[in-house]
């Protein structure tokens, strides 16, 4: 399928940013979260360095509450790219009994996502982490820089961020400082799907509508991916034709009712969508804002 000029520009820009990471930093890593953005990111990483191989490893923070289909997809996809995958889990938090059912979203995210991410970055000495975040995902991200500076302890200081002129990225960092790089900054949800369609990129089947067991909780459809999620009083499990717009930890990721079973239908659906993709993220609506989470070192 022929790419639009718009997609070509986005693709070239993302490749250039990825190459900049490899050219300037000593020890880059690509944060692989298994979702559609990660699939695109991985695809672009391969294109950026072809004919050579991807010169950095992938890192996946496993909370152990990801959808089963995601993990199966991860191992298959990573093998297909011949990339090295590092998986890290905060086992101490799991042993301390932190679960999405007993703790609030804030604590859960902090302990099973933010903390292990920081641990893994420190342990391997990664100086730049390449992520798939997009500026249009959430209002607070609209000002995120393409290269975002993190101080010692992965803190994010809005005032320390460097102005970005043209395509000139000041990537000098002091010891203990690191950076986050976002090659997909300028993409939006439809761009992602159009690119997936044009390049025929594999994504987790959960993005496509199918009959799935779900529970209606706080007005949102939560999928019963395994027995750890049980209906509460007054709730019951039912089969619904649903799909996911974003993927994360299953107890915190709501499904939307949909009949879109392929990429073209998803694009058609999105063109008439009236709510943003993050609506399905339970995490984003609990107490602290995305900005607060960023200050603590959440991606």
């Amino acid at each position: 399928m022929k790419h639009s000029q718009h997609l070509l520009a986005l693709e070239a820009e993302a490749i250039a940013i990825m190459r900049e990471c490899a050219a300037v930093f000593k020890n880059p890593v690509l944060l692989y979260s298994i979702g559609k953005d990660s699939s695109v990111l991985l695809h672009l990483a391969r294109k950026a360095f072809a004919p050579a191989t991807i010169p950095f490893p992938l890192l996946h923070i496993d909370t152990t509450y990801k959808f089963k289909e995601m993990l199966a997809f991860r191992d298959h996809a990573v093998a297909a790219f011949g990339a090295r995958l590092i998986v890290h889990t905060n086992t101490a938090a799991l042993e301390a009994g932190i679960t999405p059912f007993t703790h609030d979203a804030g604590t859960y995210t902090q302990q099973l996502k933010t903390v292990p991410l920081r641990e893994a970055l420190d342990r391997h000495g990664f100086d730049v982490a390449i992520g798939g975040a997009r500026r249009d995902e959430e209002r607070a991200r609209a000002k995120e820089h393409i290269f975002s500076l993190r101080g010692a302890g992965h803190t994010w200081e809005p005032r320390a961020q460097r102005p970005e002129f043209f395509t000139l990225y000041n990537n000098r960092i002091a010891p203990l400082h690191t950076m986050r790089a976002f090659p997909l900054s300028n993409w939006n949800e439809i761009d992602i799907w159009r690119y997936i369609e044009a390049e025929n990129i594999d994504v987790v089947p959960l993005y496509f509508a199918a009959k799935r067991p779900v529970i209606l909780r706080n007005g949102q459809w939560i999928m019963q991916d395994d027995a750890r999620l049980q209906p509460r009083a007054g709730e019951h499990v039912e089969e619904k034709l649903v799909r996911f717009r974003t993927l994360g930890c299953y107890p915190f990721t709501a499904a939307v009712e949909s009949t879109a079973t392929n990429v073209a239908e998803i694009i058609a659906e999105l063109l008439t969508a009236r709510s943003s993709e993050r609506v399905g993220r339970v995490i984003d609506h609990g107490g602290s804002s995305m900005e607060d989470k960023k200050r603590e070192g959440y991606f």
């Binding site: 070509l8 070239a12 820009e13 391969r46 294109k47 950026a48 360095f49 072809a50 004919p51």
Partner: peptide, 17 residues
């Protein structure tokens, strides 16, 4: 290579190898 794909030519704005 243009965006990782073997090509004969490329132009301003293309990410190449």
């Amino acid at each position: 290579w243009k965006a990782g794909v073997e090509s004969r030519h490329a132009q301003a704005g293309d990410a190449i190898a």
